[in-house]
């Protein structure tokens, strides 16, 4: 059955605290950190971007399970921050993991859900027999304009999930999506920073679509929230996933392991793939995982996943790559000036 063959996450080493950003803009840092539920976020190094993080995540995944590189038939990188407007990130990833040249590749963009769109595409290709393995990556060096609400959360990181049929560590029982044209967040061609509709990004956007896809999944599977051991929801901040999980009937314990946002920030396309990775870091055979992503514009992809015995078998070495918890530990803190330098916010002559 189709499922996740292996996974790997990557988070840069640098961090900035919410209170440090608030200090620069004369805002109440403690209040903002408590309101968003985000106390710090990751910051990319000067030489890191979506391509480098995608390669590191994919290499970590392959360290856990050695897949024949020529059997990787597709690579999709979902991101809002592809380093090139025209030239695929996915081809560089393919070259750097030795999967080229007999493979297809493309870069995806659907705000924060491009990574899960890649999982669905790989599932379709694996299930149709077009490819043996596909690699779906969600990664971002997320943008937020200086002084904008997004700046408190827009962070950097990502994860790679390899999809296949042969002894998956977690079977994907079903996927479904819920999509409408909802302009809650966008970035026009050539613009450096995204724009958003403020409070409009809540009820008619995030909550409507996450609940739409989640209800659809529960209905199609004939399940209730208590049937699942873990749940992962898109996490632009900690407030939204906590609220939507409660509205749907999931508990704080179920979303706990997959909620990386309080110490990581919003990795946009990387958010749900990192959440899945953090959950697989602790999952046991038989555990059932409920996943719903969200991408502005707007849509949600839901997944029903069951962890298999393979996760503890000889073919899979979970400890061969760092866990999300290990990647989050020992961050190196920057002040706002160094953060601005790292993010290219200082105009150089």
């Amino acid at each position: 059955m189709v499922g996740i063959i292996t996974y790997g996450a990557y988070i840069p080493r640098y961090r900035i605290k919410t209170e440090e950003i608030a200090r620069v803009w004369g805002a109440n840092g403690a209040e903002i950190a408590a309101g968003l539920g985000v106390k710090e976020k990751s910051v990319p190094d000067l030489d890191e971007d979506t391509i480098t993080m995608s390669v590191e995540a994919a290499r970590y995944a392959l360290a856990r399970r050695d897949i024949p590189r020529d059997a990787i038939g597709a690579i999709y990188v979902g991101s809002e921050s592809h380093p090139y407007a025209v030239k695929p990130s996915s081809a560089t990833v393919g070259e750097a993991i030795g999967a080229t040249p007999v493979m297809t590749a493309a870069d995806f963009e659907f705000a924060c859900k491009a990574g899960t769109a890649g999982i669905q595409t790989c599932m379709g290709m694996v299930m149709s027999g077009m490819i043996e393995y596909g690699c779906a990556i969600g990664a971002d060096t997320a943008q937020g304009a200086p002084g904008d609400a997004l700046e408190y959360t827009a962070s950097a990181g990502g994860a790679a999930l390899f999809i296949g049929n042969e002894k998956p560590i977690a079977e994907i029982n079903r996927t479904c999506s819920f999509t409408t044209d909802t302009p809650d967040f966008w970035r026009r061609e050539g613009q450096t920073y995204p724009s958003h509709g403020g409070r409009f990004s809540g009820d008619p956007a995030y909550f409507k679509h996450v609940q739409g896809a989640a209800h659809l999944m529960l209905e199609q599977m004939g399940t209730v929230p208590s049937d699942y051991d873990y749940a992962i929801f898109h996490q632009p901040n900690a407030k939204f996933p906590r609220k939507v999980s409660k509205m749907l009937g999931f508990t704080a314990e179920q979303i706990g392991p997959g909620l990386a946002v309080p110490r990581l920030g919003n990795t946009y396309s990387g958010a749900v793939p990192v959440g899945i990775s953090a959950t697989l870091d602790v999952a046991k055979p038989g555990d059932r995982i409920f996943v719903t992503s969200y991408g502005s514009g707007a849509g949600s992809d839901a997944f029903d996943i069951t962890v298999t015995d393979t996760i503890e078998s000889d073919v899979f070495n979970r400890s061969a790559a760092p866990t999300v918890e290990e990647l989050l530990a020992n961050g190196k803190y920057l002040d706002y000036a160094l953060y601005a330098k790292h993010k290219g916010k200082i105009v150089m002559q």
Binding site: D45, D47, E48, I51, T52, E56, R59, A96
Partner: peptide, 9 residues
């Protein structure tokens, strides 16, 4: 001891 990483040159 060091290990390789993939970065922008």
């Amino acid at each position: 001891p060091v290990k390789r990483v993939f970065r922008k040159i």
